Amino acid sequence: MGSVKQVQVTFDCAEPERVARFWCEVLGYVVPPPPDGFATWDDFHLSLPPEERGTSFVCSDPTGVGPRLYFQRVPEGKVVKNRVHLDVRAGTGLVGEERLATLEAECTRLLALGAVRVRLLEADDENESCIVMQDIEGNEFCLD
């Protein structure tokens, strides 16, 4: 029985590079260097046949701890709620007003990047507060 060494999260989207760069800003991720022999990603993409240009993009955690994010172009648009989503853990360990203030500050930063605030889910007997948001192509995520 093998063991999993790494996890990659894949996003279906219309504009892979745009969405990848958004998530780089959200998470502090980076775009890896272009393949050997290419000075830039643009140079690499221009070397591809026209139908393959811009079909995917990648970003990764510079510390190597978080999962690699892969963005692939798909022909159909998003029409229903995600079955899987990311939780952006900005308020870990915080509770009450301190947690809400931290989440609201991070929400403001993400709104400036193009994210959309959907709703605040207030704390209850089981869960702390979180803010449901959408990325620049409408993929839901929780600011937690």
Rank of each mutant, 00 (worst) to 15 (best):
S3H: 12
Q8P: 03
Q8F: 07
Q8E: 14
Q8D: 13
Q8Y: 08
V9P: 09
T10L: 14
C13Q: 13
C13F: 05
A14T: 12
A14G: 15
P16Q: 07
R18L: 03
A20P: 03
R21G: 02
F22A: 07
F22T: 05
C24V: 00
E25K: 15
L27D: 12
V30C: 11
V30G: 08
V31I: 14
V31H: 07
P32Y: 03
P33N: 10
P35R: 14
A39V: 00
W41T: 03
W41I: 04
D42Y: 07
D43N: 11
F44D: 10
S47P: 10
P49L: 01
P50A: 13
R53P: 11
G54E: 05
T55M: 15
S56I: 00
V58P: 00
C59P: 05
S60H: 09
P67D: 07
R68C: 10
L69K: 04
L69C: 15
Y70Q: 13
F71D: 06
R73C: 05
V74H: 05
V79H: 12
V79L: 09
V80F: 13
K81W: 00
R83L: 12
V84H: 15
V84Q: 14
V84M: 14
L86M: 15
L86A: 13
V88H: 08
R89Q: 11
A90L: 14
A90S: 13
G91P: 02
V95M: 08
E97T: 15
R99Y: 02
L100T: 08
T102A: 13
L103Y: 06
E104R: 08
T108Q: 11
L110H: 02
L111E: 14
L113E: 06
G114E: 03
A115H: 03
V116G: 01
V118A: 01
R119G: 10
L120M: 04
E122Q: 04
E126G: 09
E126F: 12
S129L: 03
M133D: 04
Q134F: 01
Q134A: 05
D135G: 06
D135F: 02
E140I: 11
E140A: 09
E140Q: 10
C142A: 07
D144N: 09
